[in-house]
């Protein structure tokens, strides 16, 4: 595997998707604002869908099932963004903050 033909290999795309996914997990764990956490979750979804696309291109190109899955992931991401952002707006209206540390009323 030379460096110039690296985009012909499935492994490259898998490692790339794993990097995006783990950066998303790191962002989800360490961001302190609600919107930052939401965007980090979107990054995790993007890392998963590059995996689907690479597997579809290299291992099972005949039915384009991986692309269907990528489409569905986009729809899920849209629904997640809509619901998450409206929750952020509702929280902001109630607490006047986007900092997760200030939402201490959530404990029982």
């Amino acid at each position: 595997m030379s460096l110039l033909t690296i985009h012909h290999y499935l492994t490259t795309y898998l490692v790339f998707g794993a990097m995006l996914f783990s950066l998303g997990i790191y962002g989800l764990l360490t961001r302190r604002t609600l919107i930052g956490m939401l965007i980090a979750a979107e990054l995790m979804l993007a890392g998963v869908s590059i995996n689907f696309m690479a597997f579809n291109r290299f291992l099972a190109p005949d039915p384009a099932v991986g692309q269907i899955f990528a489409l569905f992931i986009m729809a899920i991401a849209a629904a997640e963004a809509a619901i998450g952002l409206s929750i952020v707006i509702a929280v902001y209206r109630h607490f006047k903050t986007v900092d997760t540390e200030d939402l201490i009323n959530l404990k029982g």
Partner: peptide, 10 residues
């Protein structure tokens, strides 16, 4: 670019 963008995000 995409790794840099993800790093910028976090």
């Amino acid at each position: 670019l995409s790794i840099l963008g993800a790093l910028g995000l976090i």
